[in-house]
Amino acid sequence: MWTFFHKLASPPHFYDLAAKFIPWFAVLGFVFVAYGTVAGLFFAPADYQQGDAFRIIYVHVPAAYLSMMAYMIMAVSAGIGLVWRIKLSHAVAAAAAPLGAWFTFLALATGSIWGRPMWGTWWEWGDPRLTSELIMLFLYFGYMALRAAIDDPAKADKASAVLALVGAVNIPIIHFSVEWWSSLHQGATLIREGGPAIQTSMLYPLLAMIFGFTFLFGALLLGRVRTEVLFRERRSRWVYNLVLPDEGRG
């Protein structure tokens, strides 16, 4: 068991293994997303209250879910890197942050587009989910800004790991306080909790989209981690053999 992890965390082994996994993740993600898009746009029945506008759920919810997931991945791997000093996990944290920021942006943008026909406004402060997504985006910006501000890469890894962990402790508190804050006004949420049960013909495309987005995210993340690993290991022997295979001296 431990030797497996040890081997996985070794940069050259990970670099090769990730290259094998990326096409599988990409194909699986593409298949799920293709099914989810077609079924969600054309075969799922229109919502009885929101009409066809509800179909935005099929991109909004996966993006929002992955924006949280990416922060979890970032914080957990940052913590692992801090405690067990595994260099690979710092590379994962560094690679997850910009992707997470992009998915957060996507969740915000689609939520805003969805809000326009439903609430009659592009931005509704009363919706706790949109507001917490916005704060989430700021957390990602802070993390990336701190990383960019520190020149020494090892120091940047550790300092940003502390920030990611502090953020992870605070995220539930932020969500809770934003919920409380908006519950004092008239709540205007898109997805009503305890509302009418969602039909399976609506639900299956959504699940497919969530799976598909997760696989695509996995492929993107592995690709970025590979780039990080390559750059971080640029002075090592295996990178030497990798970039100069013909002239290599083994």
């Binding site: 898009t37 229109a46 506008a53 689609t110 969805w114 690709g223």
Partner: peptide, 29 residues
Amino acid sequence: MGNYGAYVWSSFGLTLIVLVACVIQGINR
């Protein structure tokens, strides 16, 4: 899309653009 076409298609289009941009950016980097 029952008069919501602009909203639905722009959401899906934006998602596609961001995903493709992420892929291209990753490969280029």
